[in-house]
Design a protein around this nucleic acid. Structure first.
Length: 503
RNA sequence: GCCCCCAUCGUCUAGAGGCCUAGGACAACACCCUUUCACGGUGUAGACAGCGAUUCGAAUUCGCUUGGGGGUACCA
């Protein structure tokens, strides 16, 4: 009953849904950002809303075009297409913060005029001193509001000294204007009611002394102007949310709904970083992960399908998606399950598509050595154990070149044995007259194994000897197919080479 | 230090007071299939962090403790 009421309530709010992903281009698109983007995308799809991309490049020092391109490409590769953004435009552009720098001071001034913000001339040293006192007294650091009531004369004097003011938001002013007590609360879509005592939030800077906006101010202005209705982001933003709500209110704007996702952690419960492996979407792709697998896997971090079927495409996930059912705790990024999922997606790829995607990992080989039929067959018999697309490189190495690299253990444990030597000599003798098509080979080898079995050699060992001589390994794809693809010449050459002449 | 969030097998999760002897997936292990590896199939093992409270009844509600994460910037 309660549940039904909740859903109805939710439906009502779902008019004109506009969500956004706002990455800052200080690195390649992180897998965590990709997940946040996905959840926004799913929410938009589920509610017939718009998904917007905004680039937050306020910090010019850390921004680069390369990263911007990477973000675009990664998002596209994942299929997270945006309805409005820097490249496609839209009604509420521009969608790059650095192109919006003239907007922010206007709103900052509005806040100053309304008494919700004030100029602050404090130097970094003064601020630092305040902080030290606070920590020494084990008190939370809250800005002293020293500059709140500066007179025009005092300000003029400070300006004359060459000081440039920052603009601070007046927390208590806003709090008291819109709320009865200093407790500020909002209803988070994934975590429920979240609250804070605003007395503990200092008056924070909204415009830096160099005239650029701080993050907390720029997001609010942009989200407000872009009519963002729901903000879904990582829980590292929870404390920002309170500040942002107050800005919305001071501006007389409608406060959007917020939803905060748990973070993605590395297996050691620390932040996921390069030392744990790939972290950027593009890195995963380069190392052989399929974007379909990546997106599916990441969807399962915090969300679970109602029918229990974990592997499904994004549009099906979108249809089943409910933001209030997302887990509110952090989740650990377990590469094992991603790998399993990736192998599953590789298995599901149609042959043509698979060949296309495998090509980049076959560059080191001279593919002209093989006919198209041989190439297809090679892929067919080697695709099964692939976990990453890149695994193909090693999986097919013995199909190329005259000789083959024999692993040391294979040499000593298999090829050097008397049995193997016998098998191989006999193989050369008999196979001389065989036709090397798969059907014949299959039949002949069966008989061949049979003969040795009578002599007490297990079929396994018989095949091992041949496999070791031809591929240099003890494991691998179907032997008849391998022999057939390589052809009699190469096979004989390789086998002869490992037979120890016992003249 | 202070503030906030979180807590079910190793991991991702199902679980909305009796449907729970806690279900599924990955990983692990065993067996089957098999010319190897793998795939596939069948099984096994494995969790409600602890303590109190509420209740006839708690994984589920409340409190404390512990553990983990986040925030505490003129970074985003």
């Amino acid at each position: 009953m309660f549940r039904i009421l909740l859903e109805i309530k939710e439906e009502n709010i779902m008019t004109d849904v506009r969500v956004r992903i706002a990455p800052s281009p200080s690195g390649n698109l992180h897998i965590g950002t990709a997940r946040t983007a996905l959840f926004n995308y799913l929410f938009a799809k589920k509610n017939n809303g718009k998904f917007i991309l905004r680039i937050e490049d306020t910090d010019a020092e850390r921004t680069s075009q390369e990263y911007i391109d990477n973000i675009f490409d990664s998002l596209k590769a994942l299929g997270l297409n945006w309805d409005e953004g820097p490249d496609v435009g839209g009604e509420y552009g521009p969608y790059t913060q650095s192109e919006r720098f003239d907007i922010y001071p206007v709103y900052a001034q509005k806040l100053v005029d309304a008494g919700f913000a004030y100029e602050c001339f404090c130097t970094p040293e003064e601020l630092e001193a305040e902080k030290e006192i606070a920590t020494a007294n084990k008190k939370p650091y809250v800005y002293s509001k020293k500059c709140e009531h500066l007179t025009d004369n005092e300000k003029a004097k400070l300006r004359a000294e060459g000081r440039k003011p920052a603009i601070r938001f007046n927390i208590s002013k806003a709090q008291h204007a819109f709320h009865p007590t200093s407790e500020l609360m909002f209803d988070d879509m994934v975590k429920g009611e979240l609250k804070v005592n605003t007395d503990l939030i200092g008056d924070f800077v909204i415009m830096k002394s160099n005239g650029t906006p701080t993050y907390n101010f720029a997001v609010v202005i942009d989200d407000m102007l872009m009519k963002i209705s729901h903000i879904i982001r990582g829980e590292d933003h929870i404390s920002n949310t309170f500040k942002q709500i107050l800005i919305y209110e001071a501006l007389g704007a409608e406060v959007p709904r917020f939803g905060h996702l748990g973070m993605i952690l590395a297996p050691d419960r620390s932040k996921l970083s390069k030392r744990h492996g790939a972290t950027a979407v593009s890195e995963f792709v380069e190392s052989g992960y399929l974007t379909e697998a990546l997106i599916n896997f990441v969807a399962l971090l915090g969300w679970s399908p109602s029918d229990g079927v974990e592997i499904k495409p994004v549009d099906e996930i979108a249809a089943d998606f409910r933001i209030n059912e997302i887990s509110s705790s952090n989740s650990i990024f377990e590469y094992d399950k991603l790998r399993w999922m990736n192998s599953h997606y590789i298995k599901m790829l149609p042959m043509d598509e698979l060949k296309k995607r495998l090509l980049p990992y076959l560059k080191k080989y001279d593919l002209s050595q093989l006919s198209e039929a041989q190439f297809n067959r090679m892929i067919e018999i080697t695709r099964e154990p692939l976990i990453l697309l890149s695994d193909i490189t090693d999986a097919v190495s013995y199909f190329f070149g005259e000789d083959v690299v024999i692993e040391p253990e294979v040499q000593t444990e298999v090829l050097d044995t008397e049995t193997a030597q016998e098998v191989l000599s006999e193989f050369l003798k008999q196979a001389k007259n065989w036709s090397f098509d798969e059907e014949t080979l299959h039949e002949k080898l069966e008989g061949f194994r049979g003969e040795f079995k009578e002599k007490g050699v297990k079929p396994k060992q018989t095949m091992w000897a041949i496999r070791a001589a031809v591929t240099g390994r003890t494991k691998g794809a179907d032997m008849t197919a391998i022999l057939s693809i390589l052809g009699k010449d190469k096979v004989f050459k390789r086998v002869s080479k490992v037979i120890k002449s016992k003249v």
